[in-house]
């Protein structure tokens, strides 16, 4: 049962439902009664993507298709990957990314939809020893879209993987990353930011499985929910038997800025080794009234003060992006959405 199978067979019975533990807060079967027809090939001209100016190498998939990005051992490159949906059809995309030993890749990934489409993207990412990948994802879907992105990441010892997923939600938006972590001084950073408003929904799901000794994982997800929006965070860290000296930290912090918004979280630890240091923290709440009062008392109007405090709140995640130019794009993107 998977979203990809549902799109292929047009059988809604294949869609995950709330009865599936992993999808309890992102029920697709209850939402989609009939799957739309397959998306038609797109022939028009595309508007520019959010990272166009940063990258020289572009991969664009419109309404499905396959893409492959290989970075040879020791090479360093910067790639923009656009997953575009045009119209109201259903489609699936597949992306394969391979990094050779010591290769370095900055991946600037964007999800762009413009209507009530149903799309799924499957990414398979492999990092050889000593490779480094920074994945920055900007998920700017249409409010009527159903968008599911599922990445399977396999790391080798001494590889560095870092990702920051920035999302503004959709009718249903699911951004899933599963990492197989071999330990061996490899590291994973699994960050995320979400800003959801109106009736939008976003779901950040991550699973990191530590399979060997000496691995580190660090995760910081922060988000803001307004109006009647709903945000979901499901994070899971598994430490297999024998994966000693694993150091894993997970943090999820959310602000709810209206009475009808909702945040659901499930930060999970599953540990089968004893010499580990694992922790998670989770907070959900309203904005700090004292901080707001302080700002206003210094002469800053309330809406301005709120935006400023929210920006500072999520700024902590954005600061962790390694690639400075991308950090600027993300910061600007967030600021535009906060000052409304």
């Amino acid at each position: 049962m998977s979203v990809a199978a549902a799109i292929r067979t047009r059988d809604v019975g294949e869609l995950p439902s709330r009865r599936d533990e992993d999808w309890r807060w992102t029920d697709l079967r209850g939402l989609i009664r009939v799957l739309p027809d397959a998306s038609e090939a797109f022939t028009g001209t595309l508007s520019p993507g959010p990272f166009d100016r940063l990258a020289a190498d572009h991969h664009v998939l419109v309404n499905g298709g396959d893409a492959r990005i290989d970075v040879a051992a020791g090479k360093k490159t910067l790639v923009a990957l656009r997953l575009v949906s045009r119209g109201v059809g259903a489609h699936a995309s597949r992306v394969t990314i391979n990094l050779g030993a010591g290769a370095r890749l900055r991946l600037l990934e964007s999800y762009e939809s413009d209507g009530a489409s149903v799309c799924q993207t499957a990414l398979t990412i492999t990092l050889a020893e000593g490779a480094a990948l920074e994945r920055i994802v900007l998920a700017q879907d249409h409010e009527d879209a159903v968008s599911v992105s599922q990445a399977e990441v396999r790391l080798s010892p001494t590889a560095d993987f870092g990702q920051t997923i920035v999302a503004s939600g959709a009718r249903r938006q699911r951004l899933e990353t599963r990492v197989v972590h071999p330990g061996g001084r490899a590291s994973a950073r699994m960050d995320g930011v979400y800003l959801v408003a109106d009736k939008r929904h976003t779901d950040h799901t991550t699973v990191v499985t530590h399979e060997g000794v000496d691995g580190t994982t660090s995760q910081l997800i922060k988000g803001v929910a307004r109006d009647q929006a709903r945000a979901v965070f499901q994070g899971k860290i598994i430490v297999s038997e024998g994966a000693d000296r694993t150091d894993a930290r997970m943090g999820h912090h959310a602000l709810i800025l209206s009475d009808r918004a909702e945040v659901d979280a499930k930060p999970e630890l599953e540990i089968y080794a004893d010499d580990v240091s694992c922790a998670h923290g989770n907070t959900v709440g309203a904005m700090d009234e004292d901080a707001l009062f302080y700002a206003r008392q210094r002469g800053i109007p309330e809406p301005e003060a709120r935006a400023m405090l929210t920006e500072a709140f999520i700024g902590q995640v954005i600061d962790r992006i390694w690639f400075e130019d991308a950090r600027k794009v993300v910061r600007k993107w967030a600021a535009e959405r906060l000052r409304v």
Binding site: I256, L257, S258, D259, R260, A261, P267, L269, A279, H280, G281, N282, T283, V284, G285, A286
Partner: peptide
Amino acid sequence: GQAKFEHEA
């Protein structure tokens, strides 16, 4: 929006 939940493990 007026609930405050803190969790640490």
